[in-house]
Every structure is written in structure tokens, then in C-alpha cells.
Design a protein around this nucleic acid. Structure first.
Length: 420
RNA sequence: GUGGCCGUAGCUCAGUUCGGUUAGAGCACCUGGUUGUGGUCCAGGAUGUCGGGGGUUCAAAUCCCCUCGGUCACCCCA
């Protein structure tokens, strides 16, 4: 370790080969699901005008203390995106695409908070947004998309929690009922919850402190206070989920962290994960976000899933293992290395992934490298082969490891049988 | 932002209680045994400002303070 060596900043990490391929595979699996459902890919900037994220909620830590914000040389106040929904809605408002606008995305996001299991300052999420329809069919479609995606990875211990947070016609009355209920038991609440009550009564329902649980259990719940229209919408979502055979559990105390949510909200929980970071993803409706950001009245719904946590859950469930070898073929060249350079190009043209040793190392060392690489086949070029314009093919795995020497012109055909 | 635990070789760790010769092990790595053959075996080798800084002491990986990092929980959230 060199003196004063640098490290990745606190809460960030390097994702090295192996794990990085695995992460990309998760994104690819998600992209497949999204494309199947008619979602297009959208890429938005990693930083936005700070104002874009103010609508997440003035009472949430994400806005008040976790934002990486900065004033750039143009004097404007920007923030690294702490989430993507607001950024995508901003893009919607800016470009006014035809509705419904169905998009998926992936990429890094930033929150300045203390790192913890499955929680980083730079973290990656994948997600979808659908803007421009309030048809319960889109709610169900999106929820189902998330569900099928987890299934496609092989995860079996994920559950879907569903709730409705009401809309402007019914939520105020519920909030009043909830607040007066908590006020009546104010003294029994934990100190922290007493504070939360003043800032955002809904979030008291989310408290994990034991002393709050009994009070929360008896608290009024939103689903009992939904307006007829909202209740009908929620029933529609549930009906379609049933038709799609997506098991869901009504969780009346599920409260999402960001203020823009209305009506349908949901969360995917991973039960193989220990501790409090078992939320694998979540989302909901944000029917007023577009108009809040200066756009048209356009209802929207979406979700975001934490890539890092998904991989933790995969590890815990023992599914979706990392891809094994990078190269199928390893070239051993004892003539100096030029032959390996030419062969590697030849193989790449034929679509065969290969690796090789460098620095003209001993054959033994090259074989060790070949073994370590995980390649299935070694190609050997020594003085004899070079003189005869041939290559020796030696299987490195499996029962039969007899090696054969073939002309270079017949190499690709011979390799194809070894690799099939 | 608050609190607990932890930082010794690339990795996993021993040594820290009670300060005392050149700081160890396993794995991994390199070389050779095997001048055309890996994964086994044998022999040898390289690798550390003991996270960093300051202090106490004749003497600090070991004790004290500060700091940075990791981890877990809280807060918050994916």
C-alpha cells in the first residue's frame, strides 16, 4: 500500500469484474421485461436543477440533508439526482411526448447518508415510469412488471405489499383523523415519533420503535377512509393483479417516504435479507407531480428497484450466480507472443472470446494462467505448430482432455465442436 | 446527524489482556523440481510506514487522545 494512497469515497465502492458483469446482467434482465411490456429506454442527466427534487417533500431527509448539491460556475444550483422519478417527470414536462409515456431507466443516484448494509452514497436503481393515464390497468401492469422481473432472476422470497394513500379528496380527512388519534396518545409515543407527528403524521405509521407499535396497530388506516372513486380505483388494481396471479398483501400502514405519492403505493420486500434494509424496491402513483413541476395535469405511476439490494437478496437466496469465465479460449504461445496476437484477432472475428498470457512467460506459467482464467480450451502454439501453421487444441475441463493438432485454417471449425 | 463493534501482507486472521529481540500463519502470487503441458505434490521466494497523525515511555501493533475508513443499528430510505 503506497503512502497516502487514495480510496474510493466513503459510501462508494468499486464494482470489479465478475460483480460488474452480474450487475449488468440484472439490468439486461430488467430491460427485457420492460421491453416486453412496451417501455422505452430513457436516459436523463445525472444532475438536475435543485428545484426538480424539492417536490420530493420538504419534510424528508432526502431533500433536507441528503442531497449532494452544488453551485456550478454558471451560478446555478444543481443537485446530483437522489432519485429518478422527479427527473423523468421533468423530462416528460420538457418534451411533452404522447401519453401514456412509458419509460424505463437505470443508473446511479446519490444520497449523502451513513452507509449501511445494502445502502451506499452512490447506488444504482432500475425503474419504470408511466405518465399520462390513471387507468388501474397501468398500476397493475407496472406492479406485475416488477414482480415478474424478480421471478426472472429466480427470487422466490419476495413479497408485494400494497396500499392506497388516497387522493386530495379523501386524504385530508384521513390525516385529520390520524393526527387527532396520535395527539390523544401523544405521551405514549416515542420522542422521535412525537416529532415526526408534527412534521408528517403519515410517517409515524412507519416507525419501527417498539414503544410505538401498539399505538400504530390501533391507528385508523387510509384504506378505510378512501373516497368511493379512489376505493374503486384501488379495487380495480387488485382485481387485475388477481387476474394476473400476482400475490399481494394489503399493508394499510405502508407509507412511502416521498411526499409526491398518491393513491396506489407498493413495496417489494426481500425476506432472505436480514435487518432493516429488506425493501428491494417500491413505488406508487404521483398524480400531481407533473403539474407541480410546471407541466400539464398528467397522472403517473412508477417504481424504482435497488440493484445492490437485489443482488444481496440473490446471494441470500442463492440464485442468479455471477457469470463464470470471461473467455472460452486461452492462448498459450511459447514462440514469443506474436502468434497469440494474431490468433486472438482471428478468434474474435469468429465470435470466440479469448485471453492469453503476456511477457513470454514459461509454458507452465501460461498453463497456470489458462487454468485460472476458467477457459474451457487452451490453444497451444509452439515452434512446431508455428512451422507447420497449425495449432494444438487442449481441453482444460471435462473427462476427455486429449489434445489434437489442427491446421490454422481448420481451427474455428474444430473449436466450435469443442465449445458447443 | 446519533450510538455499538472493528482496522495487522492482495484475502482470511493470530499477536493487543499484562508494552520488551529482525511482526507471524493459511490461502493467493512468483520461481524451480518438470528446457512442450494447468488444476495434485515437494522445495524455495517476494510482500507490511500493524489505517493515519500526535502523545506517554529507555522501548508502542500493544497504553492515551485525535482523525480517517469499514461494519451494524437508529434516523431516513431503494
Amino acid at each position: 500500500m503506497a503512502q497516502a494512497s487514495f480510496r474510493s469515497p466513503k459510501g462508494t465502492r468499486d464494482i470489479l469484474p465478475g460483480e460488474a458483469e452480474r450487475q449488468r446482467a440484472v439490468v439486461n434482465a430488467f430491460a427485457d421485461q420492460a421491453r416486453m411490456a412496451g417501455f422505452g429506454h430513457v436516459i436523463t442527466p445525472i444532475f438536475e436543477d435543485l428545484g426538480v427534487f424539492k417536490r420530493l417533500g420538504e419534510s424528508t431527509d432526502v431533500v433536507t440533508k441528503e442531497m449532494y448539491d452544488f453551485v456550478a460556475k454558471d451560478g446555478k444550483h444543481y443537485a446530483l439526482r437522489p432519485e429518478l422519478t422527479a427527473a423523468v417527470v421533468r423530462a416528460f414536462v420538457q418534451h411533452r411526448p404522447a401519453m401514456p409515456w412509458k419509460v424505463w431507466y437505470e443508473g446511479p443516484q446519490f444520497r449523502y447518508e451513513r452507509p449501511q448494509a445494502g445502502r451506499y452514497r452512490q447506488f444504482s436503481q432500475i425503474g419504470v415510469e408511466a405518465i399520462g393515464t390513471e387507468d388501474p390497468a397501468i398500476d397493475a401492469e407496472i406492479i406485475a412488471l416488477g414482480w415478474r422481473f424478480y421471478e426472472s432472476l429466480g427470487l422466490r422470497q419476495v413479497t408485494l405489499l400494497l396500499n392506497s394513500l388516497g387522493d386530495p379528496t379523501c386524504r385530508p380527512a384521513y390525516l385529520e383523523a390520524l393526527t387527532s388519534y396520535f395527539r390523544a396518545r401523544h405521551g405514549e409515543l416515542s420522542e422521535q415519533s412525537q416529532h415526526t407527528l408534527e412534521v408528517n403524521p403519515l410517517r409515524v405509521l412507519d416507525s419501527k420503535r417498539p414503544e410505538d407499535q401498539a399505538i400504530i396497530d390501533d391507528a385508523p388506516v387510509m384504506v378505510d377512509h378512501l373516497s368511493p372513486e379512489t376505493a374503486e380505483h384501488f379495487d380495480g388494481v387488485r382485481r387485475i393483479l388477481d387476474r394476473l396471479e400476482i400475490p399481494h398483501e394489503i399493508s394499510p400502514r405502508l407509507v412511502r417516504g416521498l411526499d409526491y405519492y398518491t393513491r396506489t403505493t407498493f413495496e417489494f420486500a426481500g425476506h432472505a435479507l436480514e435487518g432493516s434494509q429488506n425493501a428491494l424496491g417500491g413505488g406508487g402513483r404521483y398524480d400531481a407531480l407533473s403539474s407541480d413541476l410546471g407541466g400539464p395535469d398528467a397522472p403517473g405511476i412508477g417504481f424504482a428497484l435497488g440493484v445492490d439490494r437485489i443482488l444481496l437478496e440473490c446471494d441470500a437466496e442463492g440464485v442468479f450466480p455471477a457469470a463464470d469465465a470471461l473467455a472460452d479460449v486461452f492462448i498459450i504461445d511459447t514462440t514469443g507472443g506474436d502468434e497469440a496476437s494474431v490468433l486472438q484477432r482471428h478468434l474474435a472475428t469468429a465470435g470466440i472470446a479469448s485471453d492469453r498470457a503476456y511477457d513470454a512467460r514459461s509454458m507452465k506459467a501460461q498453463f497456470k494462467a489458462a487454468d485460472r482464467s476458467g477457459a474451457r480450451v487452451a490453444l497451444i502454439v509452439g515452434d512446431d505448430e508455428r512451422a507447420a501453421e497449425s495449432v494444438t487444441i487442449r481441453p482444460l475441463q471435462g473427462e476427455n482432455r486429449d489434445q489434437t493438432t489442427v491446421p490454422v485454417t481448420a481451427l474455428i471449425d474444430n473449436l466450435s465442436t469443442h465449445l458447443s
